[in-house]
Design a protein around this nucleic acid. Structure first.
Lengths: 155, 155
DNA sequence: TCTTTGGTTCATAATTTTGAGAACTAAATT
DNA sequence: AATTTAGTTCTCAAAATTATGAACCAAAGA
């Protein structure tokens, strides 16, 4: 992965943009792109810095963010001080669960809104309640969906 | 909705922060908060500007963004030039579908990554393929979930 | 026709985000 | 002990985002 082909560079940018749309900074997205596109499943800090032409500080911060977000993991080898970073590919379960928790958190806020409003506006109350119930329905059903996927795989 | 209570203000900020986390600017999130918390299902441009203490330009841009994102709708009344804005509460279907399309778009990128890599790294290939298949599974199942919700409602 | 209303658009200021580069540190090597 | 390695942290500049206020505009009303 010393040099990237034009095609690889292009795909890395595309994957980068997807991650930017999810709220991550460009460099962070590019690192994800590189790790998905890379021939090898793990790259060292130095390789990432060199192939993407980014500063060590940007790489350090981005990698630590991605580790903390559990989008990346790293391996080490005995007698080698380097860390070898790779995309974490089997965390789909927690990713979806996190999203659902966030949605559930919002539905709690909407419930507070409904409580605060009291019965001053029944139509509004009804509409918001429907929203809430839809979000709760999703939060209930999606874990079952994940289970279904797990079953079909033996994971 | 001339004046907001402390409790309402607080809840509006909370709902605002949720929307900020979804990638929207503060004012945009607060408008969503106001419309969810409001006693009335529709507020005029002026009311939004006055109760949130924001500039007309910020309101104009935010409202047009929210309309374009289909998080808001507005009604008009004969003999009244004003528009009355309210949170769009029945667009859960398209919201979820859009999210799924975005995920499907990403899975397409990952497929390109796998193609580009060829069989230079079978283990990587396998792991990425699993990711892809999970995303495709979701995109396939979630619309059925929505249908299930629709059924249970007669919508 | 003149003014008011209901916004929109523009120029700009304030804030935040992002990333570079240099200085730094701790462990390992010479 | 001195140097190299593998990063981290700090300072700062550039760029992007966000929102303000003023100017503007088109439709409606006086």
């Amino acid at each position: 992965m010393a040099q990237l082909t034009q095609e690889q560079k292009h795909l890395i940018e595309k994957i980068g943009i997807y991650h930017e749309q999810q709220g991550l900074p460009p460099v962070v997205g590019r690192i994800m792109g590189l790790l998905y596109v890379s021939d090898r499943p793990h790259l060292s800090f130095e390789e990432i810095v060199d192939t993407l032409n980014i500063s060590k500080s940007a790489a350090s911060n981005a990698l630590n963010l991605l580790l903390q977000m559990r989008l990346l993991e790293y391996t080490t080898y005995p007698g080698d001080r380097k860390r070898y970073f790779g995309a974490l590919m089997d965390n789909w379960y927690e990713e979806v669960i996190n999203k659902m928790e966030s949605i559930l958190g919002f539905s709690k806020l909407l419930r507070q809104a409904n409580d605060l409003r009291g019965n001053s506006n029944p139509a509004m109350h009804e509409k918001v309640l429907e929203r809430i119930e839809f979000m709760e329905f999703l939060s209930q059903e999606v874990p079952m969906l994940l289970e279904k996927w797990r079953q079909g795989r033996g994971q």
